[in-house]
Simulated scan of single mutants.
Amino acid sequence: MSTGLLIQYVVIGLVVLASALYAFRKLAPLLTNRWLAAASIQFNQPNHAAWLRALGRRMQPKQATGSCSDGCSTCGACGPKPPAAAKSDTIPLEFRPYKR
């Protein structure tokens, strides 16, 4: 196996891994936030090296601030809007029993 082919495989593997992580992050955000928080706590121990503690602080997931831009959906204001009220010129359906 040549060096160029090995580099190509490594680059393609990294791209596939990055896209899989991105998709997993988009599809399961609560699970990935829990995993990031657990890893951040493990890395940010006082007996670890400074670079490892800095990595732990950087990996820490963002907390919900309660503003409308963080997407936490705790207040329900960011969710879908309720349907508009029915117009007055519409007639509601009436279901009657079938007569033979």
Rank of each mutant, 00 (worst) to 15 (best):
A28V: 05
S73D: 11
D89E: 07
A86Q: 09
A54E: 07
P82Q: 08
P97V: 03
Q63K: 14
I91D: 07
K81E: 13
F95M: 13
L55Y: 01
T90Y: 05
Q60E: 15
A84N: 07
L5A: 13
L93E: 06
G13R: 01
C68H: 05
Q60L: 02
L5Y: 07
G71M: 03
L14F: 13
A20I: 11
C75Q: 03
P61G: 05
L6Q: 14
L21V: 14
R34W: 10
L17E: 06
Q60M: 14
A37E: 09
P80S: 10
R53W: 02
S19F: 14
A64E: 10
Y22C: 06
C78M: 03
W51H: 09
P82V: 01
A39D: 01
A23T: 10
R34C: 04
N33F: 01
L55H: 00
L21Y: 03
Q60C: 04
S67D: 15
G56Q: 01
A38S: 12
Y98A: 10
T3R: 06
L93R: 05
S73R: 13
L93V: 10
D89T: 05
P46R: 13
H48R: 12
V16E: 05
T3G: 04
G56P: 00
A18K: 05
A77K: 11
G76P: 00
N33S: 12
G76S: 02
G4C: 07
N44A: 15
L5V: 11
C75K: 07
P92D: 06
G66K: 01
A49G: 09
L6N: 11
L27F: 07
S2F: 04
Y9M: 12
C75A: 06
T3C: 03
G56Y: 00
Q63R: 15
L31Q: 08
T32S: 08
W51Q: 07
M1Y: 11
K99L: 14
N33I: 02
A85R: 13
R34T: 11
S73V: 04
S88I: 05
Y22H: 08
M1F: 14
